[in-house]
């Protein structure tokens, strides 16, 4: 009963929850657009998504920051891939192709193919991405993680 009560408190007053969590995580998404530069050469620009259609390339950024006075140890970020997005790449991430049960480098993972036999996992099989920082986030420190996907 006590536990339930506390859960309710955390939902009802998020500010209180933040106060306890020194580390914050902010997610943003940008869309890749092909543009022509002043010389008419094609360049790729990242823009805030005003209009998004199937086939658009998305870049998800995760900004983390340790506002506390002490380092945060064993910092791990996990991001499930949204249902309508097909994963393409994640810098320095390990991935899961089974809904977050097992993890590894994509090249080392296998999934069951259409014929029932295991085959090498493809980026489109990825269900989750995860990063684990090798060193603690120092007090006042922060950084950015990112992964890419395509709107299915």
């Amino acid at each position: 009963m006590t536990r339930l009560f506390f859960t309710f408190l955390a939902v009802a007053s998020p500010a209180a929850a933040w106060a306890a969590d020194a580390v914050s995580l902010t997610s943003t998404v940008l869309v890749e657009r092909q543009k022509l530069d002043a010389q008419g050469r094609p360049t790729v620009a990242l823009e805030e998504p005003q209009v998004v259609v199937p086939g658009d390339k998305l870049v998800f950024h995760l900004n983390y920051r340790n506002a506390g006075a002490t380092p945060a140890q064993d910092f791990t970020v996990t991001n499930p891939i949204p249902a309508s997005v097909s994963f393409t790449a994640g810098d320095g991430a390990i991935v899961s192709v089974d809904g977050g049960t097992s993890w590894g480098r994509l090249a080392a993972l296998k999934v069951k193919g259409a014929d029932g036999q295991p085959r090498a996992a493809l980026p489109t099989d990825v269900t989750h991405v995860r990063w684990t920082l090798a060193s603690p986030i120092p007090a006042g420190g922060g950084g950015q993680l990112s992964f890419r996907g395509i709107v299915k």
Binding site: P54, D74, T78
Partner: peptide
Amino acid sequence: GTRAGTVIVNTATATYDDP
């Protein structure tokens, strides 16, 4: 492709050890 009007929702979760 994804049906028009579908909302793509993204959230991540961080875990760490406090002092």
